[in-house]
């Protein structure tokens, strides 16, 4: 009896081939990110080489036709809009998640969670459109022209709220029941349990969710483009119209060429850098897994 004869035709070899094929596919999927970075570098290289990186921060203003490439006002606008949106959406999102897990009756919680999930699926262009037709005119009655950093913040906050709420909800769900039972056995009230036990236990997940939401806010284009007014200036008040880095790309790619186009790729690189920093922070916090 000859038992285990390995042969070229045996399934083990087919498995090895399948493994290599799949690994190649995975490598290709991973290479897309590298390709994006390389291409952004390649396209922005001419202007980076001629003008240098510093002037993108140092130049007074963005006048590409006159070779003034100051991205600083738009960078500030981007940061201000994102920061404001996170400031609003963070607490609201965590409160929404707490509402679902600990306050609402079961049926209400289910309905509410479904609503938040649907809200997460609404396209940014619809948020922007609604902001433009409803929010901007409303605000213009108090403080013309209406399209401003504030409207940008409000719309962005509404947009990233589901991200915060859903990740916080998942983090709250992951808090072991034993903690809750332990807190109840000590006679802690609901508020004290949440403040003292639940939130500290879910802190990591909540913070990484907020970081994810920040990344989304930084990278969002359409919603802010449509409601924030698009004037290149460093914001000094909430009612100033502003233009973010993303909106700038969307507005000017249509006609940009030469160094101007390359400068837009530089701003793309800058956005990419911001997002990678945030992703790295969230990655560290969540212990190696971001999405899904």
């Amino acid at each position: 009896m000859i038992w285990f004869k390995p042969s070229i035709l045996s399934p083990s070899y087919a498995d090895a081939r399948l493994g290599w094929g799949l690994a190649a596919a995975a490598g290709l999927a991973a290479a897309i990110l590298l390709l994006i970075v390389l291409l952004l570098l390649r396209e922005s290289w001419p202007v980076l080489q001629r003008v240098g990186g510093v002037r993108f921060f140092a130049d007074q203003g963005w006048y590409p036709a006159e070779e003034m490439y100051g991205l600083a006002p738009m960078l500030w606008a981007t940061l201000a809009a994102s920061f404001g949106a996170v400031l609003l959406a963070g607490p609201l999102g965590v409160a929404s998640a707490l509402f679902c897990r600990h306050y609402a009756p079961f049926s209400v919680a289910r309905l509410y969670r479904r609503m938040v999930t649907l809200l997460a699926g609404i396209p940014s262009v619809v948020f922007g459109f609604w902001g433009l037709t409803v929010l901007v005119p409303l605000l213009a009655q108090f403080q013309p022209p209406g399209a401003s950093l504030l409207t940008g913040i409000l719309i962005l906050a509404l947009m990233i709220l589901p991200t915060v709420a859903l990740t916080a909800d998942a983090a709250l769900a992951a808090v072991p029941d034993a903690y809750l039972r332990g807190a109840a056995a000590l006679g802690l009230s609901r508020g004290a349990t949440i403040a003292g036990v639940v939130l500290p236990a879910a802190r990591g997940g909540i913070i990484s969710g907020v970081l994810l939401a920040t990344a989304r806010a930084l990278g969002e284009t359409m919603a802010v483009l449509m409601v924030a007014g698009n004037v290149v200036q460093t914001p000094t008040s909430l009612f100033d119209p502003v233009r973010t880095l993303t909106a700038n790309i969307a507005l000017e790619m249509a006609y940009a060429s030469g160094d101007h186009r390359a400068a837009l790729f530089v701003s793309g690189l800058m956005l990419m850098g911001l997002v990678i920093i945030l992703a790295a922070a969230a990655w560290r916090l969540s212990g190696g897994r971001l999405h899904g």
Partner: peptide, 23 residues
């Protein structure tokens, strides 16, 4: 691979648009 996918998921869509246009 996982890390690069996670970062790719975070790339702003307008940057992907730039990439798509150039590539």
């Amino acid at each position: 691979v996982g890390l690069s996918l996670d970062v790719l998921a975070g790339v702003p869509s307008i940057v992907l648009g730039l990439f798509g246009n150039a590539f």
